[in-house]
Design a protein around this nucleic acid. Structure first.
Length: 271
DNA sequence: TTAATCACCTGAGGGC
DNA sequence: TGCCCTCAGGTGATTA
């Protein structure tokens, strides 16, 4: 399930293959993703060159001469660089074909992803303009998170997963960061001290940096652009470890539901 | 205005 | 072996 490290891994993987390449065609096999893929892409993309491959939060931005393709991988999306003669697989919904014979394919079994097109600055797109800071930027710091949390009556886990507060912290890394910071996931965001927010900010930055370095987390749905899994799963402390002993104290990891999401924590190490 | 819930979707895995 | 059910979850829209 792509979170920020998986999206960044994908960006780094596809960039050398498509940067400065000229698009010859775009194929929409299944337009029904989270939002319909605009059919205008078939006319808008051919003849364009990829000028940069950027990322904002979990959105990939393929910038071209005349506009930007915005891609979100949703729950199960992945991008693949392949020879354009390779037969499409069942869930290959969208494809950009390049003059060098390569293709960029979006595979997304659950179809929670999105492919959009804008001719404006993509950072002003309605899905992107209100996003919070990047977690690895200096703008995301203790003061920012502490001040943002004042008077908030929601749980800390829900709070840090809100993309308008900080982008890219999904369920896996929210669980892991709260464990590293020693904060109980149900504690109210507005009732946490600045000192504990410092621990949390450092934990978020640490867990995301490690995951990016290791190519993301390999769970059921994620592989990188080569079809290979990520390796961060080997370093998870609590996610998916219900009833297993805590790596720090040995007590059983607990599992609860928050906001329709599984939450894992150690009741001894997190308070 | 804020917080909680719903809806979208399909593959994996477990039980029978 | 095959069918059915539950679970997984990012995020905008809707509801309270």
């Amino acid at each position: 399930m792509p979170e920020l490290p998986e999206v960044e891994t994908s960006r780094r993987g596809i960039e050398p293959h498509i940067l400065s390449q000229t698009i010859t065609d775009a194929i929409i096999r299944q337009k029904k993703l989270r939002w319909p893929i605009p059919l205008s892409l078939k006319n808008n993309l051919p003849g364009n060159q990829i000028t940069s491959v950027a990322r904002r939060g979990k959105y990939l931005l393929l910038n071209t001469n005349t506009g930007t393709v915005i891609i979100h991988l949703g729950m199960s999306g992945s991008l693949h660089i392949i020879n354009n003669q390779t037969p499409a697989e069942k869930h290959d919904h969208f494809e950009i074909i390049f003059a060098n014979g390569k293709s960029l394919r979006l595979r997304d079994p659950r179809r929670f992803g999105a492919v959009l097109w804008t001719r404006k600055n993509p950072l002003t797109h309605k899905l992107i303009e209100k996003l919070g800071p990047e977690p690895l930027d200096t703008q995301f710091n203790t003061d920012y998170l502490y001040q943002s949390s004042r008077n908030k009556k929601t749980s800390i886990k829900t709070f840090i997963m809100n993309s308008h507060i900080v982008v890219g912290v999904g369920n896996i890394y929210a669980n892991e960061a709260l464990f590293l910071a020693g904060i109980h996931p149900k504690r109210l965001a507005g009732r946490i001290s600045q000192a504990r927010y410092e621990l949390l900010v450092n934990a978020i930055k640490s867990v995301l940096t490690s995951a990016i370095q290791q190519g993301g987390t390999s769970l059921r749905d994620f592989t990188n652009q080569d079809g290979k899994p990520g390796y961060f799963k080997q370093h998870l402390n609590v996610y998916g470890k219900a009833d297993l002993p805590c790596s720090h104290c040995g007590q059983k990891i607990k599992q609860i539901r928050q906001q329709q999401r599984s939450t894992y924590y150690c009741s001894h190490c997190q308070s």
